[in-house]
Computed example of a mutant assay.
Amino acid sequence: MKFSSLGSGSSGNSSFIEMGNKKFLIDAGFSGKRTAQRLNDIEKRIEDIEGIFVTHEHTDHILGLGVLSRKYDIPIYLHELTYNEIKNKIGKIDKKNLNFIRDEKVVIGNCVIKNFEVMHDAKKCLGYTFEFCGKKLSYASDVGCVNNIIKENLKNSDVIVLESNYDYNMLMTGPYHWELKNRVKGRHGHLSNADAAKLVGQVLCNKLKKVYLMHISKDNNTPELAYNSLQQVLKKENRKNLDIEIIGESGTKIYKL
């Protein structure tokens, strides 16, 4: 398995995952042209993508979805409630490329992609786990709060890709008006550094080798604060060999699980 983020932030979110000879995207929050270029930057081709798994309907996750599916004949996998929210935005999708997620998992060849619901201010927001040849990558973006469903799905992971959106003190003293602050820190908003770090600490296992922190707020967080929050938890657990990487808007290099 291989993983790379093409970028994460308010300007767009998309990630690449390779499982054997199968290549997929998680979300398509950049324009079609920009997505193709970012794949080219990591020496991958948009023409080889065999599916796009959508987390939820917000524009920074689906901007290029329709264009990519039509131009490159790429299947998309999403919840029907999400499709109903975005169908007018993404345009016509060929029926053969429209796959509604109704079961807990999708099996493509030897690849097993499981989904689980996360709390967010969307009609339906999904996290995913990708399993192939004994390896597991867990992906949870735009998480309002942690619950047992998320904990159970993140257990036994080799890699975790997780939102660490805001620092509580920066949010509360920052420029957002009170209503927006309440939205961000609410049960259907985003995940704080402290809660993201706590969650990783709760699902730590010997298999876990790398944690990516994504969706870092420009206004209410810094990469250093997100990194340090998790590092403090890892020190308490004496996990010195766990690699932490912050995903910014420019994305990441390819990581081999």
Rank of each mutant, 00 (worst) to 15 (best):
150 I>T: 06
142 D>G: 04
143 V>F: 10
150 I>F: 08
134 G>Y: 03
160 I>A: 03
136 K>D: 02
135 K>M: 09
137 L>E: 06
162 L>V: 13
150 I>K: 05
165 N>T: 12
140 A>N: 09
151 K>S: 00
146 V>K: 07
156 N>E: 09
143 V>W: 03
153 N>M: 13
159 V>Q: 06
153 N>P: 15
141 S>D: 03
140 A>K: 11
144 G>Q: 01
138 S>Y: 00
144 G>C: 00
163 E>W: 08
151 K>I: 15
145 C>A: 14
138 S>M: 01
148 N>P: 08
137 L>M: 02
156 N>T: 07
136 K>A: 06
165 N>R: 01
153 N>K: 15
155 K>Y: 06
152 E>C: 14
147 N>K: 06
147 N>I: 09
140 A>C: 07
141 S>E: 02
144 G>N: 03
157 S>R: 11
161 V>I: 07
143 V>N: 02
161 V>D: 04
134 G>I: 00
143 V>E: 02
140 A>R: 02
144 G>A: 05
146 V>Y: 03
144 G>E: 01
165 N>H: 15
158 D>V: 08
139 Y>C: 08
139 Y>S: 10
164 S>E: 03
148 N>E: 10
140 A>T: 08
151 K>L: 15
143 V>L: 05
148 N>M: 12
154 L>K: 10
162 L>R: 10
142 D>W: 11
136 K>H: 03
137 L>S: 00
142 D>K: 13
140 A>L: 00
156 N>I: 12
155 K>I: 12
134 G>F: 00
162 L>M: 08
153 N>T: 11
145 C>N: 13
156 N>P: 11
152 E>A: 15
134 G>P: 12
137 L>N: 04
152 E>H: 11
159 V>H: 05
136 K>E: 01
165 N>I: 03
146 V>W: 07
160 I>Q: 03
144 G>T: 00
161 V>S: 06
159 V>K: 03
154 L>G: 01
136 K>F: 04
146 V>E: 09
151 K>Y: 09
137 L>H: 06
161 V>G: 10
144 G>F: 06
165 N>M: 09
160 I>P: 07
145 C>P: 04
160 I>T: 09
136 K>S: 03
159 V>S: 09
138 S>H: 02
148 N>L: 12
164 S>A: 15
158 D>P: 05
147 N>E: 00
145 C>T: 14
152 E>L: 15
144 G>R: 04
165 N>K: 09
